[in-house]
Amino acid sequence: MNDAPKDWFQAELQETLDEDIEIELEDAVLSQEIARIYRGSHPHQMDRATYFRELLRLQSELIRLQDWVSYHKEKVVVIFEGRDSAGKGGAIKRITQRLNPRVCRVVALPAPSDREKTQWYFQRYVPHLPAGGEIVLFDRSWYNRAGVERVMGFATEDQVAQFFDDVPEFERMLLRSGIRLVKYWFSITDEEQQMRFLMRIHDPLKQWKLSPMDLQSRVRWEDYTYAKEEMFERTNIPEAPWYIVPGNDKKRARLNCISHLLDQIPYENVPHEEVALPDRIFNPDYEREILPHDLYVPQKY
């Protein structure tokens, strides 16, 4: 039996472990007490080996999806919404980790400028929609109007009402144009969000993730809940339904989201040209110049 595929998988799994340990440094830099409390509140976490094995398998399927989208010039939009610290960014990071950034890109828009505030509400999102052969992941989207803008008073009730009237038809227009639209809401409990905010406060590598808006979201938890419920009621259309991802367990949430996303799109294998490494052309008369030492990065490690 040929052991090459097995050896490749083991090597790739080890590399994945190494990469993800770099990504997830929180346990190393958190105070021991916060880490202990967090682990105690998540007694049934998936073991790391199982998680990484499944993540790698799903990421290999994402590559097949990417190839299919590119080959058939498909257009895919995936929306990630949810409360602050619900795990949207972590899921997006694992989706894009092994994909070609020319095919799959992330859109995370800042607050609108004064000029954008005077435009048609959806106008600033339209330039980021995919062309043929592209996947676009929106880390928050036009649904800001139904959530943070509404709760924090950045949009009037008339503007919110207009949004609810417009967004179903806007999304139907996207679908009619050939875009495949998938919408995810990452859901966590009040207690889980509080724990994650405390972890960010005590983690110097993640304090940048805490904004004044995030802190206000704790105060206005019930307002966000009401806004979310009305958003689902008004925008959960048959052509573009919402899918809720339970997010208290980060690892399972990521795996479940990726698995579900793959199930939404009828991708299949596409033809590939065989790749062969060409021979290097060797010129015996060529002499490589010695470059000045100060052009090199210092070898500190």
Results as ranks from 00 to 15, higher is better:
43 P>M: 05
181 L>T: 06
2 N>F: 01
141 S>K: 01
203 D>V: 02
195 M>C: 05
23 I>S: 11
81 E>I: 04
28 A>R: 15
291 L>N: 03
97 Q>V: 02
296 Y>A: 14
180 R>A: 11
242 W>K: 08
123 Q>L: 00
152 M>C: 07
254 R>Q: 15
129 L>C: 02
90 G>A: 06
1 M>I: 00
120 W>H: 11
37 I>P: 03
41 S>N: 15
255 L>P: 12
95 I>L: 13
80 F>S: 05
253 A>F: 05
5 P>H: 05
269 N>C: 02
249 D>T: 03
281 I>V: 12
24 E>Y: 15
7 D>M: 14
65 L>I: 02
119 Q>E: 13
228 K>S: 06
157 E>H: 12
93 K>Q: 14
13 L>D: 04
42 H>C: 12
239 E>C: 05
298 P>E: 11
42 H>P: 05
56 L>V: 06
89 G>I: 06
296 Y>W: 11
227 A>F: 10
148 V>A: 13
211 S>R: 12
124 R>M: 00
263 D>M: 09
75 K>V: 01
201 I>C: 03
239 E>K: 05
68 W>P: 03
93 K>I: 06
53 R>E: 09
87 G>D: 10
144 N>A: 15
30 L>M: 12
152 M>R: 07
280 R>L: 14
253 A>G: 13
188 I>Y: 04
232 F>I: 02
182 V>E: 00
199 M>S: 14
111 A>H: 10
111 A>C: 01
132 G>R: 08
238 P>I: 07
48 R>A: 01
227 A>N: 10
56 L>P: 07
2 N>K: 10
276 A>T: 15
17 L>A: 14
233 E>M: 11
282 F>V: 13
108 A>L: 04
102 R>H: 13
111 A>E: 14
296 Y>C: 00
137 L>E: 02
46 M>G: 00
259 S>I: 01
63 I>E: 14
13 L>W: 05
20 D>N: 15
67 D>I: 02
135 I>A: 02
250 K>P: 09
242 W>H: 07
119 Q>S: 00
9 F>P: 03
257 C>E: 11
48 R>M: 08
79 I>H: 08
225 T>S: 07
189 T>L: 06
110 P>S: 10
98 R>S: 04
227 A>L: 08
237 I>L: 11
245 V>Y: 09
198 L>R: 14
290 I>A: 14
207 Q>H: 06
